[in-house]
Amino acid sequence: MTQPLIAESLKRHFGDHVALESASLELRPAELLALLGPNGAGKTTFIRSIAGRLRTDAGSITIQGIPQKPGGHPEVARHLGVIPQEIALYETLTACENLKLFGTLFGLPRADTEDRTRWALEWTGLEDRSSEPVKNFSGGMKRRLNIACGVLHRPTVILLDEPTVGVDPQSRERIWEMLERLRQDGAAILLTTHQLDEAQQVADRIVIIDHGKTIAAGTFDELLNQSIGTQRQVVMTLAETPVKIPQGFDDLGERQIGLRVSDVARELSAALQVMNDSGLVVNDVSINSPNLQAVFLHYTGRELRE
């Protein structure tokens, strides 16, 4: 079966700097795939290569079975929607005018452009503001319109760069609803984000790249199992700094100790009994589920990249 997007073993060097070493991913139909990586990992180079804006030194990219070529392929362009992180709109034009302009640039017939403009205004919740210049819009409104302008031509593969950066929770919620509708309509979405909690929540699968290489790919649960496992972490805050840490516990500092557990109900009561037996007074207990951030840090390390 032809996948909407397949990128295999992409390589790209800028002088001595290796931007992509061996970057690969596969986007499946109606899937939301999160592409994660620290700053400088090669995400932007990867996305721009897929969009046809960067030449690759090696590797291949196919979109709906059509090989992408440097500079873009007209057939690929019909299937591909690119939504940049920056607000790529004409600020002095109204929302309606922006939508019609980009509809025309994507080659939509006039009648279709009108239909899609009405659809986009309803989809973004901007019907009441359609006649206002974009410069008057809030950040969230601009970002919704920014996304709408990139999907007017009904692309089946959508590249989304940081779709929710800098917007309030309400707009963020609306944007995820919008993307979910696109997915329900059959579009496959590849998004880059640093909002790991959101990625964990909305993504069907996750790809992590670092130093230009794909280092992990799979569902959240798969990545969890491959990395830190499914154990919860029990964190206890003690009344006083312990003289000796009980066996099996980790010293987390500042009167906190931690323990990894697989069966919370059984192992937590046993742990509290150990505290009691050791004469340690527990002031507080919290149970942390393993999250994408922990998985991400496991794969990419904790050192700063900038």
Binding site: A51, P74, A88, F102, L105, F106
Partner: peptide
Amino acid sequence: ERMISGQM
């Protein structure tokens, strides 16, 4: 980039 990602 968005403008040239279409048919133009």
